[in-house]
Design a protein around this nucleic acid. Structure first.
Length: 276
DNA sequence: CAAATATCCTGATAGC
DNA sequence: TGCTATCAGGATATTT
């Protein structure tokens, strides 16, 4: 569920607690969260020794990837489906599915919690090279309108699938791809290479607006309560959803029926009346 | 070569 | 009420 706006909200709420801090101790208990360090239990110790002593200098994000810049490369986090990065006090009660704990030099603790264990954390010397396969963040990519329009219109896939392709632009997930298509008045199934230039420009503009609006509201927390910011606070952007998961409520613009359809293996929602 | 599909995982929910 | 089956989905590997 965490998409660009949610990861950006986590970054913003995490930043003040970690910048200029030193990781004095790392404790890893979830193997899958540190799977880049190997398969067995050795991965836990390998992660711990790799990140202990890092001096954090800042935070950055591209798409759904978040990383802390340090004096020795970057500590990258991907939340995938259900990951949470939480700033805690050491005395805060532990919760199930806490896989990593980072003790900072001011006594605070950063915890990585992830029920579905799809998320992960790892250190890399060069985060830019590591993420070379990831396209520009969607807000920046769409701001380069001519590039965005040309690239979009070369693809023979449903426009929704193109928006979800992190190699094209990054940070758009299942919620915001549906919302971008809706505001643009286009069916998510529409093949990208049949979209007119003016319509593609509209999609670029709406991509910027929808993602920025969601960031301003702290991201979309859903009923499952999985996504919260680094202080455990839920976001309010889901109040803006006009089609995503609105089968019962109807279209947020016209009130008409919402249709659900699987596109590229993802359940998708669109308004039959507003989107052609 | 690009696009579709299977896979990882747990918890919430739908359905009986 | 209580059980089981289904669904959710980001990125990667595999298949088409």
């Amino acid at each position: 569920v965490p998409e660009g706006p949610e990861v950006e909200t986590v970054r913003r709420t995490l930043h003040p607690s970690v910048v200029n801090r030193r990781i004095v101790k790392a404790t890893a208990t979830g193997r899958r969260s540190v799977r880049r360090y190997g398969e067995g239990p050795v991965a836990l110790a390998a992660f711990e020794s790799d990140v202990t002593g890092l001096n954090i200098t800042g935070t950055q994000r591209r798409g759904k990837y978040l990383w802390m810049t340090t004096d020795r490369g970057a500590l990258v986090v991907h939340l995938r489906m259900s990951g949470q990065v939480l700033v805690c006090a050491p005395t805060d009660p532990g919760v199930v599915h806490t896989h990593i704990m980072l003790d900072l030099d001011d006594g605070a603790q950063v915890r990585f919690v992830d029920p579905r264990t799809f998320g992960e954390m790892w250190r890399t010397d060069d985060p830019i090279a590591e993420l070379a396969h990831v396209g520009p963040d969607a807000v920046e990519g769409a701001a380069d309108e001519a590039w965005f329009v040309d690239r979009l219109r070369t693809r023979r896939s449903p426009v929704k699938s193109v928006l979800l392709d992190q190699g094209f632009v990054s940070g758009i997930g299942n919620i915001y791809s549906d919302e971008i298509c809706h505001r643009s008045g286009i069916r998510p199934t529409r093949l990208a290479n049949t979209i007119t230039k003016p319509k593609a420009r509209l999609i670029a503009a709406n991509t910027i607006d929808i993602l920025n609006e969601a960031i301003a509201l702290g991201g979309s927390s859903l009923r499952d309560g999985q996504y919260v910011d680094a202080h455990g606070v839920a976001g309010e952007a889901s109040a803006n959803h006009r089609v995503y998961d609105q089968l019962k409520a109807g279209c947020g613009t016209c009130g008409g029926p919402i249709k659900r359809q699987v596109i590229g293996g993802r359940s998708s929602y669109f308004c039959v009346a507003c989107q052609k």
